[in-house]
Amino acid sequence: METPAKIELQHVHFAYEDHEVLHDINLRIPPNQIFVLFGPAGSGKSTLLRLLNRLTDFSPEETHLQGKVLLDGQDIFAPDVDVTRLRQRAGMVFAKPVPLPLSIRDNITYGLTLGGRRDRSTLDETVERSLHAAALWDEVKDRLDDPGMALSGGQQQRLCLARTLALQPEVVLLDEPTSGLDPISTLQVEEALFQLRESVTFIVVPHSVQQAARVADRAAFLLMGELVEEGPADVLFTRPKDKRTEDYVTGRFG
């Protein structure tokens, strides 16, 4: 018997207004590895990602969800779910880095202080641990009180990763986290993920098939809101079962 899934989607249909974006998705994401969701633009990857910590609640449009999304077996859309707690357990890093208009230090401690943590030494420890984890510590350790927005794009994205990691999430959702970064910064972000995958479940929407193949332990291929194929990365990127996956991975379309 396989390990229990960290996240499980059961017959998930999701629509904005009357436009269905996800059709009957069934997916089990095992814990503590890098799971990649890939596919052409408009295939529903970002929506699926946002569903996992209910950022879809913020949609200005009316949304419709059928099916179940389970985190550790618990339905995250159940009425008694503490959404704040859910978002701390499943953190999100966005495509465009958005540092809050605060210092580097305060960006990282922001989530903790929301929960009422004030203890200076715990906060300082968290800042150092998170920045190390996001491979940013050496670059910013002497200027933690500078504004987060003064950092370069690549540094900002690692700051956002550190801010998410500060909450010690079990799951981290990354939506094209390196789309605006140069190759070196991209590598640094990817390295940070590799360092942490023993203890965190990463779900990544990559910005290219190459990146998907580079970072994935397991992967799922989405096309037009449908889950075409899911499996271990070495299978999916070398011997895919579905013709459409093969065509996409080898660059015949997309």
Binding site: N53, Q88, G91, F94, L100, G111, L114, C160, T164, L167
Partner: peptide, 21 residues
């Protein structure tokens, strides 16, 4: 708007986002 989304994404309530950011 992105500040508000980030606030929510790290578990902030709407009012916390308004008051602090």
């Amino acid at each position: 708007q992105s500040f508000r989304v980030v606030n929510a994404a790290v578990g902030g309530t709407k009012w916390q986002g308004i008051r602090r950011i």
